[in-house]
Structures are given as structure tokens and as C-alpha cells.
Amino acid sequence: MVFDKMKNLQNIFRRVFEENYTLLMKVVYRITGREDLAEEIVQETMIKFYERIEQLPHDETIRYWLLRVARNLALNYEKRRQRENAINRKLIQDENTFDSETADTKLIKKFEKSLVQKALMDLPFNLRVVLVLKEYFKFSYEEIGQALGITENNVKVRIHRARLALASRLKQGVLNG
């Protein structure tokens, strides 16, 4: 009986993974700009799902929960990255040491060779996430709201701001510089 239940849960876990892996990888890659980090975040997201597999729905609505967890994990990374960048900048200013980049920063630069990723990473985190869900995955405003836990009106404003911000960067030619 217990064995059957566990087997059933394992099957559900595999199915949910198969159905959502590509979506999660693409979204997190676009948000973080790094494939290795996207992989790490997707793993952690699925582990959180595994822990709560009995409490959560197993239908297609689970993708909103998975996206929200992945987004939160990516946000944690973003905050860490910003802190590290600030420390690095301060070190450079204080000690005039130009070789004080962390391995993490170097890795980001390597992945930021992609102009699109560079442009996306220039956007504030909240704008970046809505733009990615809209432009790459054609999510409706309602779905984005559901995935991020914000109102549709908020989604509308953020998408508009994200488009304007990105267009302005493209116009200024910041990406080429």
C-alpha cells in the first residue's frame, strides 16, 4: 500500500518535471542570464515541489507555483549578485585594484556576451521577469499575475515600463557601447 503510494508520487514527480522542465529552464535562463545557474535553480525548485508533492495540485496549474518558486530563488541570486557587485566596485575605488572581480562576476560577463541577455540583465528584476513571460512564452496578463502573485493591472504597467526601458536602451546604443 505504502509502496504503491510512493510509486504513484514518483510517477507524478517525473511527469511534472517532464512537463515543466523546458519552460522553467528557459524562463530562469532569461532572468539570470546563466545556463548553469538556471539548472541549479530548476533543481532546487523541483526539490521544493517534491517536498510538498502531497499538498500541491498535480494538474497544469502547478506551473504557476513552480514559476513563482523559481522566480523567488532567482531573486535571491539577484540580490546576492548586486551586493557582490557593490562590494567589488567599492574595492576597486578604495584600493584601485582592477583584478578584484569574483569568479561569479567573471562568469556572468562570459554569458553576457549575448546582446539580448545583456539587455535583459540591464532591466530591473521585476520588469525583466514580466517581459520574459510575455515576450518569450506569450503568457496572458492573468497568467503572469497568477505566477508572480501580482494584479493584472500591475502586470500591465510593468510590461509597458519594461518595453519602454528596453527600447530606450536600444535607442541609446548602450548595448553597442
Binding site: 522542465y21 523546458t22 529552464m25 528557459k26 535562463y29 545556463e35 538556471a38 549575448s114 546582446l115 539580448v116 539587455a119 535583459l120 517581459l131 515576450e135 518569450y136 528596453l166 536600444l170
Partner: peptide, 11 residues
């Protein structure tokens, strides 16, 4: 612009 570059093959 956003779809101008191929993305990695995650599969």
C-alpha cells in the same frame, strides 16, 4: 530584438 538570438538547447 528579444528573439534575435538562438537560445541554448536545454533539452
Amino acid at each position: 530584438f528579444l528573439t534575435s538570438e538562438p537560445e541554448p538547447d536545454f533539452d
